[in-house]
């Protein structure tokens, strides 16, 4: 490869609920660190992964850090595509209204606040996976 290397498409797939295992936090940390490489990053929340974005998480009773607030910082790190699977929400009795509002400021559009959470059908998830250079699973 010569000159500026091409931006690659990275997809992080999250399938675990947040606090019972270390997967969700590890994924988030990798995303934050990886953001320094300025690639084209998307996050997918499938199966119990949708619980990572639940509004109103209160971890004070279980003695772990409430890292759910950190998802709202992702926009600063130019991670602005958080795909949540519609079927995974529905199977769990959830709707997008149960999730935290997460947005980013679009520099190209006079810093307008735009939503980062995108609800995607399973078929759209399949297409999303198929267009990636790299898929990382947690």
């Amino acid at each position: 490869m010569t000159g500026q290397s091409k931006r690659k498409k990275f997809l992080y797939i999250n399938r675990r609920a947040p606090h019972g295992t270390i997967y969700a936090l590890e994924s988030l940390e990798v995303v934050l660190i990886g953001a320094a490489f300025e690639q084209d990053v998307s996050l997918a929340f499938i199966d119990d992964g949708v619980y990572q974005l639940m509004a109103g998480q209160d971890t004070s009773g279980i003695g772990v850090k409430n890292f759910s607030k950190t998802y709202r910082a992702l926009g600063d790190y130019e991670v602005r595509k958080l795909y949540v699977e519609r079927e995974s929400l529905a199977e769990r009795g959830l709707t997008v209204e149960d999730l935290m509002p997460i947005s980013f400021e679009d520099e190209e559009d006079d810093y307008a606040e735009k939503p980062s959470i995108l609800v995607a059908d399973r078929s759209e998830m399949v297409r999303l996976i198929a267009e990636q250079d790299v898929v990382l699973s947690f």
Binding site: L32, A35, K65, K69, T70, A73, D76
Partner: peptide, 18 residues
């Protein structure tokens, strides 16, 4: 303030930007 809001300390380039 950033930590209070997001539970992380920002990376330097984010600090500069913000």
């Amino acid at each position: 303030d950033y930590y209070e809001e997001y539970q992380i300390a920002p990376a330097v380039r984010i600090l500069v930007k913000e």
